[in-house]
């Protein structure tokens, strides 16, 4: 169930978009063409609301971003010409009567090495989306080689890149886990606190990097996040 405003893939049956809160059941047909338009960030590819000044995923200015309609309208095919490359067929519009597509599977696809992301593990092209927690749909772009997951503690000078403060009332440790890109692999390492880190509902060992794939869920304290391609 794709959100018409932010293009986030919501679980079928959702009444509102987990990310931007848009009403997923309101009919957008015949509306103002400006409503629902998005700005694609030139740096990370994230699609932002049209009125955003900076990218909500990576924080880069959106001055150079190209506005785009979230659901491209089909355009009439130009007359065939031998010297023109063939055009891609228009993207089919969603049929409301058809069952929605299933959510990504959490198992590793056949032929894929654990820890290796399906579309290439480029930093800035993978994000974590909160699926269970106090703020559903919040996203964290994985843009650094090494990222601490935890809660901010200004007095202790702990400022995690994946800051789960406010998403969980006390079950996430200040230094809970670490996410690392190593070559073409993404790993999560539990840093040893009492409240465990889980991958696909199974606790992982302390201080031992555990591979993560697209579609996997990872739980810190009581917050469940899914690894999603940007």
């Amino acid at each position: 169930m794709t959100c018409p405003q932010c293009k986030h893939e919501n679980i079928a049956g959702s009444l509102f978009c987990d990310v931007c809160g848009a009403d997923l059941e309101a009919a957008p047909a015949g509306g103002d063409p400006e409503i629902g338009s998005v700005l694609t960030c030139a740096t990370c590819g994230h699609q932002n609301d049209a009125d955003f000044v900076v990218c909500e995923a990576c924080g880069q200015p959106l001055d150079d971003a190209e506005p785009a309609s979230p659901i491209p309208a089909p355009t009439p095919a130009p007359p065939a010409a031998d010297d023109q490359p063939p055009e891609m067929p228009p993207r089919p519009l969603l049929d409301e009567n058809q069952p929605p597509p299933p959510v990504p599977s959490s198992s590793t696809p056949a032929g894929q090495v654990p820890g290796q992301l399906a579309s290439g593990p480029r930093r800035g092209k993978v994000k974590l989306v909160v699926e269970q927690g106090l703020v559903l749909g919040k996203q964290f772009l994985l843009s650094d080689d090494r990222m601490l997951v935890g809660r901010e503690d200004a007095e202790g000078q702990i400022f995690p890149q994946i800051d789960l403060t406010g998403l969980d009332e006390g079950y996430v440790h200040r230094q809970h886990a670490e996410l690392t890109f190593e070559g073409t692999f993404l790993f999560v390492t539990h840093l040893g606190g009492h409240n465990r880190t889980y991958v696909n509902n199974r606790p992982i060992a302390d201080q031992l990097p555990h591979p993560l794939n697209i579609g996997d869920t990872v739980r810190f304290g009581k917050v469940v996040l899914r690894v999603v391609e940007v």
Partner: peptide
């Protein structure tokens, strides 16, 4: 329930 029925396939959220 917000929706008393759901499709046969895929994951689906019910409130």
């Amino acid at each position: 329930l917000d929706k008393p029925s759901r499709p046969l396939t895929g994951d689906f959220q019910t409130t």
